[in-house]
């Protein structure tokens, strides 16, 4: 599974992108569970945000299938926040 986070907006207006490929990782199962929870209720189109709030685009590719969902600060679910934080921290 490949998880990509694209963060846009924010006061700085500077875009950031990171991705994690879970194949071969010992914690792949954790990633899959967290990712499925994070995207389960997320819309496929960008939600309204707040001025200067970060906007996030989450793209998940798994076994040839791809899905992209969107969310925005400060209204993230706990799972979305955890996934975004982890990918931006550990991703390349």
């Amino acid at each position: 599974m490949r998880i990509e986070i694209r963060r846009t907006g924010g006061f700085t207006g500077i875009e950031r992108r990171a991705e994690v490929d879970t194949s071969g990782r010992p914690d792949a199962g954790d990633w899959h569970t967290l990712t499925e929870q994070a995207v389960a209720t997320a819309p496929g189109t960008p939600p309204a945000g707040v001025p200067d709030g970060f906007r996030y685009q989450i793209t998940v590719e798994d076994q040839g299938h791809s899905r992209t969902v969107y969310c925005a600060d400060p209204r993230l679910t706990d799972e979305q926040r955890a996934l975004i934080t982890r990918v931006l921290k550990e991703g390349a």
């Binding site: 875009e15 992108r17 389960a40 496929g44 590719e61 076994q63 040839g64 299938h65």
Partner: peptide
């Protein structure tokens, strides 16, 4: 586009079946 960091375009893929169920409702 206005990417400041080098951004690799996502490889175009044809996805006949979404891997997750679509959102149940849309407000738009």
């Amino acid at each position: 586009d206005v990417n400041r960091t080098p951004v690799q375009p996502v490889t175009p893929q044809i996805a006949p079946v979404p891997p997750f169920p679509p959102p149940p409702t849309s407000v738009f």
